[in-house]
Design a protein around this nucleic acid. Sequence first.
DNA 1: GAGCACTGC
Length: 843
Amino acid sequence: MRLPIHEIEIDFLAAYRDGARLILQAPTGSGKSTQIPQMLSRAGFLDGGEVIALQPRRIAARMLARRVASEMNEPLGGLVGYQIRNENHTSSRTRIRFVTEGILLRRLINDPELRGVSAIIFDEFHERSLHGDLTLARGLMLQKTARPDLKIVVMSATLDTDALSDYLSPCETIRSEGRVYPVDVSYIGDRLANSNAAIWDLAARSVADAVTEETEGHVLVFMPGAYEIGRTIRALGERLSSAKFRVLPLHSELGSKDQDAALDACDRRKVIVSTNVAETSLTIDDVRIVVDSGQARIARYDPSRGLNTLWIEKISHASANQRMGRAGRTCPGRCLRLWSERDHQQRAECDEPEAMRMDLAESILTLLATGVEDLDAFDWFEKPVESRIDEAFVLLSMLGAVDERRALTSAGRKMSEFPLHPRFGAMMLAADRYGCVPELSLAAAVAESRGLLLRKVDKSVLRRRESLLGDCAGSDLIAQMRAWSGARANGFDIGYCREIGIHAQTARQVSRVSDQIFSYAKYEDFNLIQEAPAREEDVVKCVLSGFPDRVCRRLDRGTLRVEMTGGLRGSLARESMARDSALFVACEINEIGTQRGDVSTVLNLCSEIQREWLEELFPNDFDSGSETKFDEKQKRVVERVFVRYRDLDIELKENLDVNIEVAATELAALVVAGKAKLDKWNSEVEVYLERVRFASSQFPEYEIEDFDEDSKSLVIEQCCLGAKSLRDLKRQAVMPLIKSWFGIEVENVVEAEAPMKVRLENGRTARIRYESGQAILSAKIQELYDLNAPPTLCQGRYQPRFEILAPNQRPVQLTDDLEAFWTNAYPSIKKDLAGRYPKHEWR
DNA sequence: GAGCACTGC
């Protein structure tokens, strides 16, 4: 079959012969991934050595190898093979080797000159995966030193290859047209886009309209996550006839059976509501209509706070186009974008490369291990900001992987041998000392796998799981290890796994990874002799040695609130095994945003620890009293907040829309201190600003800059660490109201599930549930307005206000005295209220 | 609705 890519074969081979570096720009569907290696083979270029074709995903490496082998009438693993983690289908005959990027990066550690390799092809480079970026930079470095004969071919689907071409210069660029069908794109109007309509309702409406106009083919709807998918499916159920349509969810946490249902053929038209999995990883045949919410949950790592954030963000043009392309694979299609054209113009052109938003510690350790001595001179395609690299080195040196000159230590060398994050590498080194290498091989594999225990399961499943697992020494990790052992004892039987809510496929994967880690440990000559299984206490000590900066203590008994070394606050995951522990270590910290704009910091994979273990493991941190560590770290947080942005006005303005909530508190503190001005404005900043103003008005004796130690910690309390979620703001608004109406001194209003504590006039305290607190407010409003039923209180999206809905769900105008309560607490609300709610008579 | 995208060694 003749493919578009064949038209450039002669040009490509000539350029390949004459130059060392080459860019091939060709869209998806042009056949470049399968044909380019074959062209090189036919032209005899592989006689001198193999070509490595890099893929960002395992499934692509496997499928491409299979496809190319069959096109060349070769057995898989002969001339054509593939290699992914724990799967190697290659032989000494192999000349075309499809591998995932991480495999090559790892190979560079043990074989820095890549002997026997004549060329590296980078496929899908536009996706800008961290491994891809690093491998390319490392490959260039190799080509410039020991291997001038090595050829580098970079293939990308995007048109914009100028920056890449500069980076690779001298380098030729060859372009090829693809064979794609046109897709008709439409946007929704400004008014609809700015309305408060929920995204799932907009989507359901669009789907219902589109399927009547376009009467064939399937529909693919993109949503940011499982929650939104559920809502969309519910909304669609009211609009589509189930005789004609089958509505199906698709996201990675579904079982494989449910995933297959979305991909399999079907007697009806399918409406598939999916996350980003359908953007690159999975392809659904015969999709004619794409409905795109324009949102995605994007993970970022915030090195200054050491946590991952997962918030809903607007997708870039590149991503929107990729989603759109899913409608034009078999014939012309259409794409409905649920945002306005004006919004579209303001969106980013491309996604931010992974290297800019991920934890760099592991990458830097790998680079050091492949022989990069001077990281300052390392030629990144796009260099991450210096502070991120610094933060990575802080972690590496805390783990003992680098010395003060930033050079690899022998411990660091050992950590780098493991295909793991250096935190887990450090855990393995500790396992060597404590004699629990097999247990930690499993612990690392389990911790890395995530998702071993399914999150959304029935209560009956939870009960069975709990009776199987026991108390697990207050450790989520040990719980997961036990769950895995149970699954293995039952041969990873699907039925058994389902009964206790284990992802069977993940459990098998964990076995392979655990074996791999164990074999690396063996190779490294670790202590493998055990007379008895390791004590769970020792296992947790090893975990702690990889996470010395993630020690948490509970703030009180009634709630799940927690403070971490470094001062960060958050909540212990409510299902955690460490829920009865006062002190624990958290392997995973996520800051999660919801569709409504709330943000919560959740600590996962926690294990109870004892104070003495800290002294045993980190004697140096405890030389002058037990609390020093906390205080030192707190000081560092304050310095960051008030020093880091001091001279960076310009950068602040430009970055204001990006990752806004990370910077917002810090910005607000600076604005109040007169250290920064903001040109752009939006409601998130306003919220934080309001809070800082509130804090400083409550404590006028403190200046925001030049703090003494006391006020520093006060500011941490008020501005930086507490009240991260909007729920806290709401709480602050509720408290004065209750006080004024009932004469009750409110001590605190705590998280939703726990009771709210109030102090009564007679000096006793009482508890009411948070929901009851809302009910009290609601009843009071009913009384004030003389309503025939209590109104509903809703939390506003970015504003610390309550929207008041009448029983018929229409919004209500506030009376002056009620409004005054809000505005006294938060002056900015006044502006927001004015004119926002139409007067509505509904008594 | 208090809670979670996707990869990869």
